[in-house]
Computed example of a mutant assay.
Amino acid sequence: MKEQFLDLSKNRRSIYALGRNLNQTPDEIADLIKENIKWAPTAFNNQTTRAVILFGDSHEKLWDIVADRLKTEVPSEEAYQKTLQKLNGFKNAFGTVLFYTDMNIVHEFENNFTLYADNFADWAEQAQGNAQYSVWTSLAENGIGANVQHYNPLIDDLVKEAFNIPDGWRLRAQLDFGSIEAGAGEKEFMNDADRFKVLK
């Protein structure tokens, strides 16, 4: 069995110690991200995934927005400082991809294919997983570390205003990426017997 794809999958890990020491240009990275999203499968080929790719000041602005928003949520100053340290790690990265679902397309397909209407929101989430995994793995193949965060929906309105996001786009995840300053730890797995059934 060929295992090149499996090897790439094993190389994709959550990297939290990220920096800005990359050889690739923002344009090269943006092109790689866009191509991965374009080729990721979607139900009915409805292409519901959208992305906003942030570099430089825009990238830093995002994580400042998250920090300001979480200040009202974290119960104590001590806890906030710990949160801020974590967020500054994301801010120190090279860039961030904001992954969105275009709900206008989801609703259009719900109306046009009523037999499957209850499934299109779920299928859009599957498309998100496909796109995020594809982008993340492709970045890792190029020596770029990344991790995925989910500060939505707390930040949705602020990010929408800051970056002029269309009304129909629903924020699903934030993937920050950069140079790998420290590797990931050991990955643990649950028991195969609890996870898989192979019937012959």
Rank of each mutant, 00 (worst) to 15 (best):
Q126R: 10
N111C: 02
A140R: 07
E141W: 09
T96A: 04
D167N: 10
D27Q: 15
T83V: 05
A184G: 10
R172D: 05
N147V: 12
D167L: 09
E108D: 05
E73M: 04
G129Q: 07
K2S: 09
W63L: 00
Y16H: 08
Q24A: 15
T137L: 09
Q24R: 13
F99W: 08
D122C: 09
K160G: 07
K71W: 00
K187N: 07
G185H: 10
F5G: 06
W63R: 00
K197T: 13
I37R: 06
K91A: 01
Q81E: 13
A140P: 02
K197N: 08
A79L: 13
G178C: 09
D167C: 01
K71S: 04
N152D: 07
A140G: 05
T96V: 02
E35N: 09
A67L: 03
D167Q: 10
W63E: 00
Y16G: 03
L154Y: 13
F99Y: 15
A17S: 11
M103Q: 08
N164V: 12
L8M: 13
T49I: 15
F177V: 05
F196Q: 12
D122F: 13
A40M: 05
F44D: 01
Q4H: 10
S58I: 00
S58R: 14
K200C: 02
L199R: 06
V74G: 01
A146E: 01
A146Q: 01
S14R: 10
F5T: 14
K91P: 01
A93H: 12
N36D: 08
S179N: 07
P166E: 05
M190A: 14
E77H: 07
V106Q: 00
D102G: 05
L115H: 09
A131Y: 07
N21T: 12
A131K: 08
T25L: 10
N36M: 14
A121G: 07
L6K: 08
Q132Y: 07
I33V: 14
R50C: 03
V159H: 04
K160C: 02
A17L: 05
T48S: 13
V159Y: 07
N147R: 06
E188C: 13
F120S: 12
G143S: 03
V97F: 08
K82H: 03
N142S: 04
R195L: 15
Q128C: 14
S76W: 04
N23V: 04
E3M: 11
T25K: 11
Y116P: 01
A173I: 09
